[in-house]
Design a protein around this nucleic acid. Structure first.
Length: 615
RNA sequence: GGGCCCGUAGCUCAGCAUGGAUAGAGCGCUGGCCUGCGAAGCCGGAGGUCGCGGGUUCGAAUCCCGCCGGGCCCGCCA
């Protein structure tokens, strides 16, 4: 498919060949221009020639141009600049071809990449509580990256790991078994009941009670062993996971497979993994010093204690090894739930032998917050050393904290700090379901105020809530910490998800009222600055998606969607479509608007933003 | 003590992968635009030592080094 990216690649290849012919093999850049007035694409290749050959820029440009032979010459206007840059303008023929291809395919069409088998793990929230806004960042980053991988053409499996044998679950069980909390709940959503009420209270009591600490340690052993206590826990945990999934589904996330820590333990993977690590020399036995008697990773991280038991990190290594196929799959597979997109969510199983639903990945991604990065980095090194042809990739993001204002609203004690980190244990968190409910309410308020004759206000408000929440978390760079403020989250104007939806709705309304277009269209009559800027932005679809993937930056896509929406709105304010008098211009503009709706819808799919025809 | 991340307008953030030619948005402040395809929109104004210092370079918000400020991690816990 012809695009901005295909032209950049063409220019890069032609420049490379030109430099080769001149006898140079050096680095140069082909990129976007810094100012629209300079053109659409630029290269500094002549600079490089000028420097290497010690000749003036003007001579270097001349030398470059006689050797420069791009394949798609008919699409490019070459404009050398006295400063030494060689600039390129994309011609009308290029835009015409692009728009007609987009319209013919109802979208951008396939993107040309080498297909890989990929697993991505995200969410993986302890199964004793509801998802809070920090978990929401994980879910949305993971789900959007999944959507991006999928859109690029890869085969992707989405995994969600359930740590059902950890301390958090044990604490919860104590709440039920020792403190008299009802296992059936109190009427509110079950994950909220367990996390907000039972767990917080139980944990507080246990921390000051030696007997209960003893009970907890026994429960942990029982969970690992898989006896009656485990079965009791399993019923509760499954119910909580089901509720957590509802919260994630509401945001447009979906999964392929649930993995359970207990399954890995009970299936007895550890010895196999440990043997492989030993045989590959990835783990060493230490005979003296403070780690005497232990098996150690990278000379610092103890993996097997001197008493022969494995530390927690061993479980992470087992999982990583399983994802990439370092160990043989011993699991059965079973149905867990139907999802909103029509797919089935599968779970591993220790007894049932359903259809094998997971094939080891070539590349495995894990979405984690920055605190876990060092340990995951170590796991990456170990795993990639054992199986060098596969990749273990880490997507780490900054923590989500609560603003002073927001913390006060949930009655958290914040003293003189500007923000506070969330903590499930101490009850300092803002639940995702509450955020969703409140944003939906804010959307509903606007809808009612405008008195818009919408068919299904409820569904529209939900769509707006999803876009507002997803976009606000995606547009911020992964490396950045977020201080969540509920008042900001409820604002639906400006650089927000609803702004994107609004732009698309406007465009779709035009198409709906416009009537049939003459295809193929000739957009040669469109020569205004605004029309050209919109056309240019549209052609950057695969360029931006590719950049987002290469740099693992989801804000890149979010910002691109915003830029497109801005370009469209500027065009919309300045030019009429339906009541345009010239039939030629009207048809051309109609095609431009139609192409915009296709590309934008395609982008929404990647971002997980619902398309609303009306809002 | 060792390591990771952040620092760009009053506030929240783009831009940094691949150095380039006048540093961009939103919110807030301020002045305009609906008898027009949807005003959740658009146009204008005010607002910037790109944390500080050095280095590399013809050229640095962008690359390198040091420092300062903020956040986080570093258990034979899970």
């Amino acid at each position: 498919m012809i695009s901005y990216l295909s032209e950049i690649n063409d220019i890069r290849l032609a420049s490379e060949n030109a430099l080769k012919d001149i006898g140079l093999q050096v680095n140069f850049a082909v990129s976007e221009t810094t100012m629209p007035s300079f053109g659409d694409i630029t290269t500094n290749a002549a600079f490089v020639i000028s420097k290497a050959k010690k000749i003036p820029p003007s001579d270097a440009i001349a030398l470059f141009l006689v050797n420069f032979k791009p394949k798609s010459q008919k699409f490019l206007e070459v404009v050398p600049h006295t400063s030494g840059f060689v600039n390129f303008w994309l011609k009308t023929e290029f835009f015409n071809k692009f728009i007609n291809e987009v319209i013919a395919q109802h979208g951008f069409g396939d993107i040309d990449v080498a297909q890989k088998k990929i697993a991505i793990e995200h969410t993986s929230v302890n199964p004793n509580k509801a998802l809070h806004v920090g978990h929401a960042r994980n879910v949305i980053i993971g789900d959007t990256f999944y959507r991006l991988l999928k859109r690029l053409g890869h085969r992707v499996a989405v995994l969600n790991y359930i740590d059902d044998t950890g301390v958090q679950v044990a604490d919860l069980l104590i709440g039920f078994k020792e403190m008299g909390f009802s296992v059936d709940g109190d009427g509110q959503k079950y994950d909220h009941y367990c996390g907000d009420v039972v767990y917080v209270k139980a944990n507080k009591v246990i921390e000051n009670d030696l007997r209960l600490k003893e009970v907890r340690s026994n429960i942990l052993k029982a969970l690992e062993a898989g006896d009656e206590t485990y079965k009791f826990a399993n019923r509760i945990v499954s119910r909580i996971v089901s509720e957590q999934l509802k919260s994630a589904w509401a945001l447009g996330a979906r999964y392929d497979l649930l993995n359970w820590e207990s399954h890995f333990l009970h299936a007895g993977y550890w010895n196999e993994v440990f043997d492989i690590l030993k045989s590959k020399g990835a783990v060493q036995y230490v005979s003296e010093g403070k780690n005497a008697g232990c098996w150690v990773l990278k000379g610092k991280k103890v993996l097997i204690r001197s008493d022969g038991t494995a530390v927690y990190t061993a479980k992470d290594i087992i999982y990583a090894a399983w994802k990439l196929g370092i160990v043989n799959d011993r699991f059965g597979y079973d149905f867990f739930a139907n999802q909103w997109d029509g797919t089935s969510l599968i779970t591993t199983s220790l007894d049932k032998k359903g259809v094998k639903s997971y094939n080891p990945a070539d590349i495995s991604y894990i979405v984690i917050d920055q605190r876990q990065e060092p340990i995951q980095q170590m796991i990456k090194e170990v795993v990639e050393a054992v199986i060098p042809d596969k990749k273990y990739k880490i997507i780490a993001y900054g923590l989500v904290a609560l603003s002073k204002n927001t913390a006060e609203k949930i009655n958290a004690n914040i003293e003189n700090e500007k923000f506070v980190h969330m903590s499930g244990r101490s009850g300092v968190f803002f639940n995702l379901d509450d955020l969703y409910f409140m944003v939906k309410g804010a959307a509903m308020e606007i809808i009612n105020k405008r008195n818009a004759p919408l068919e299904n206000k409820e569904r529209v408000a939900e769509g707006i809530a999803v876009s507002a929440i997803r976009y606000s978390l995606l547009k911020i760079d992964l490396d950045k910490q977020i201080v969540f403020d509920i008042d900001d989250a409820l604002k639906l104007e400006g650089d927000t998800g609803p702004y994107l939806q609004y732009s698309l709705a406007r465009a779709m309304k035009i198409i709906e009222k416009l009537g049939p277009l003459k295809i193929p269209c000739d957009i040669g009559v469109l020569n205004s600055e605004e029309e050209r800027a919109l056309l240019l932005s549209l052609t950057k679809f695969d360029y931006e998606l590719n950049k987002s993937y290469e740099t693992v930056s989801l804000s890149t896509i979010a910002n691109y969607a915003h830029e497109l929406a801005v370009q469209f709105n500027i065009f919309y304010e300045k030019h009429r479509v339906i009541d345009e008098k010239s039939e030629l211009v009207k048809n051309a503009r109609g095609c431009l608007v139609l192409a915009f709706t296709y590309i934008m819808t395609d982008l929404f799919q990647v971002l997980g933003i619902p398309v609303l025809k009306e809002l």
